[in-house]
């Protein structure tokens, strides 16, 4: 349903063009959950934004994004609006900042349905209350009259999830939907999102830096490093069959409940953004298996992994 091919995004930072996504390709099938994981600055949020065409002003996008055959990057303003109305809905990281503070929760939930589908207020409110019940907010009728500042972050993110589902989208773009929440509500909200997505049969692009969470929630996972996907694999294969040294490094640098270690193994060095990456493989400076070839040429993305030494290592 969603096909991304050789996506490349350049942003203008103080007039300088900077590559933030460098050659990224992946697909998401109807009803499938795809997790995009990576460190800060790896370009995962920008990928989600590119899919919704919500990149900052002055961004240059090349490559292909096709949604059910529609060329997303070439949509005219009116087609783009329809695409946002009918096909994709974004769930943002920080619900408090992403919901208009001066309007009521009811306004927020029903605005799109009333504006885009010409729904009557009553009708839209009924639908909103039903969706609020689905996200675990029982007193929806009362909540509709409240303002965002009267709700907790966890509740607001549930409102955000409900609002994303108001338009019956085919693809949810969830950009770190639990990062801004309290640890205790994170798993609750994640559970709700996961359940509703499955119940409504909506596909999802799930952005996170939590490898374990992505493995639990998604069907497939893409691992991003410095603006490109270095490996895609199915969640089931995450622990046994990770092939790229970066994915393996991420897996071993997690604390474990069962094993006792004096120090947590870490990947040496610091994560890079695409524009800081050296020639050759972007991960080469931090890779334990680096050889001369890695510094000279960037490996191609072949058979789900981007590594020169994949044959020897896995």
């Amino acid at each position: 349903m969603l096909e991304i091919k050789n996506l490349r995004v350049r942003l203008r930072v103080e007039g300088e063009p900077r590559t933030v996504i460098h050659d990224t390709s992946f697909t998401i099938g109807a009803g499938e959950a795809f997790g995009l994981i990576g460190e800060s600055g790896s370009g995962k949020s920008m990928t989600a934004r590119a899919v919704a065409r919500l990149l900052p002003e002055g961004a240059e996008c090349t490559g292909e994004i096709a949604f059910a055959g529609k060329p997303v990057l070439a949509l005219k303003p009116d087609e783009l609006r329809r695409y946002r109305v009918d096909d994709v809905a974004m769930i943002f990281q920080d619900p408090r900042a992403s919901i208009n503070p001066v309007r009521t929760v009811g306004d927020f939930l029903t605005e799109a349905a009333r504006t885009n589908f010409g729904m009557r207020r009553r009708e839209a409110e009924d639908k909103a209350v039903a969706l609020l019940a689905e996200v675990g907010i029982a007193d929806g009728g009362r909540r509709l009259k409240q303002h965002p500042h009267q709700l907790s972050g966890g509740l607001l993110q549930r409102v955000m999830i409900a609002s994303a589902l108001m338009g019956d989208p085919k693809l949810l773009l969830a950009d770190e939907p639990t990062t801004a929440l309290d640890v205790t509500t994170q798993s609750e909200v994640m559970g709700i999102l996961n359940r509703l997505r499955a119940e409504h049969g909506v596909a999802m692009l799930f952005i996170t830096h939590d490898l374990e969470l992505a493995g639990a929630v998604c069907d497939r996972i893409g691992v991003m490093y410095a603006g490109s996907i270095v490996e895609t694999l199915s969640s089931d294969a995450l622990h046994e069959a990770a092939r790229h040294p970066y994915t393996q490094g991420l897996l071993t640098s997690r604390p474990s409940l069962t094993a006792t270690t004096r120090r947590l193994p870490v990947i040496p060095g610091k994560p890079l953004s695409a524009f800081e990456a050296p020639g050759g493989c972007a991960f080469a400076p931090r890779c334990a298996h680096v050889i001369a070839q890695c510094r000279e040429s960037g490996p191609e993305f072949v058979d789900g992994v981007r590594c020169h030494r994949v044959g020897e290592l896995s």
Binding site: R81, V85, S98, I99, N100, P101, R103, E111, G167
Partner: peptide, 20 residues
């Protein structure tokens, strides 16, 4: 950010400007 949310929901620009 909330203006971006409104845009992402497909609200026409003139209404985004007026309401948000």
């Amino acid at each position: 950010e909330h203006v971006e949310t409104a845009i992402s929901r497909g609200i026409p620009r003139r209404l985004v400007v007026r309401r948000h």
